[in-house]
């Protein structure tokens, strides 16, 4: 079995004051290495929560998460941080670039945590920027780039340390059609040509068409036809 992501009976409960809300109820899900999964579902169904658990940003209340053979639910906070730095890249709806840093410096950020020299970091950052088609924008600040370009810088940052897994939370949610299509094409390329496993939350059925398959989440449970391949 070559499942990169392996979820068993996964549950997540948030506590608001005295009130406990179970957001995910016993999720079982396998995602093969090299897959491109679109995660869809109504607002509040728990998509972001599930994605954050798979990316190791938060811990589950129950069940197990295994990613690349590592039991994330058993790692300490610092161990999780170290794991994230080399095994997963993140792309968010609002890019979340550091405003005062150039595109290249932003892309370099994850490499600061490695032993690479300044020259090596710069070289890798430039390769990543080239891959997302922004080699000529390396010294631009985020404010000097369009939304689509900023999101591509964020993608470069996500892949610069060469993780096997990319998790994307509504990466095109803030983009116009044209830019969204560029970003999605880029993700598709990364999946096809570079073997990245991608899990992408989206509300947009058109965006989901770029994925290999679609998983539906409803009120914290995977829908019966969850494993249906994309059209």
């Amino acid at each position: 079995m070559s499942a990169l992501v392996h979820l068993r009976n996964l549950s997540k409960t948030y506590t608001r004051g005295l009130q406990k809300v179970e957001v995910l109820h016993g999720i079982d899900l396998d995602i093969e290495s090299g897959d491109f999964v679109a995660l869809m579902g109504p607002s509040g169904s728990g998509k972001t929560t599930l994605l954050n658990l798979i990316g190791g940003l938060d811990g589950p209340t129950g069940g197990s998460i295994t990613v690349g053979g590592e039991r994330l639910d058993q790692l300490s906070e610092n161990a999780l941080a170290r794991w994230r730095s080399s095994h997963v890249g993140f792309v968010f709806q609002f890019y979340n670039l550091l405003a005062t840093l150039s595109a290249r410096r932003n892309v370099e950020l994850p490499l600061l945590l490695t032993r690479l020299s300044g020259a090596q970091r710069r070289q890798r950052a430039d390769i990543a920027l080239q891959l997302v088609g922004l080699a000529d924008r390396a010294v631009h600040k985020p404010s000097e780039l369009s939304g689509g370009q900023q999101q591509r810088v964020a993608i470069a940052r996500a892949i610069v340390s060469d993780p096997e897994l990319l998790v994307c939370d509504e990466p095109t949610g803030d983009l116009d059609r044209q830019s969204a299509a560029e970003v999605l094409t880029l993700l598709q390329q990364l999946n096809r040509d570079h073997g990245k496993t991608i899990i992408m939350v989206t509300h947009d059925p058109k965006a989901a068409e770029f994925a290999r398959r679609v998983v539906y989440l409803d009120k914290g449970t995977l829908a019966d036809n969850a494993q249906r391949p994309a059209a």
Partner: peptide
């Protein structure tokens, strides 16, 4: 706060 969150996301420890 969002920038700090990103640093942590990327793998910077709380320390």
């Amino acid at each position: 706060i969002p920038e700090l969150a990103i640093l942590k996301t990327i793998g910077f420890t709380s320390g």
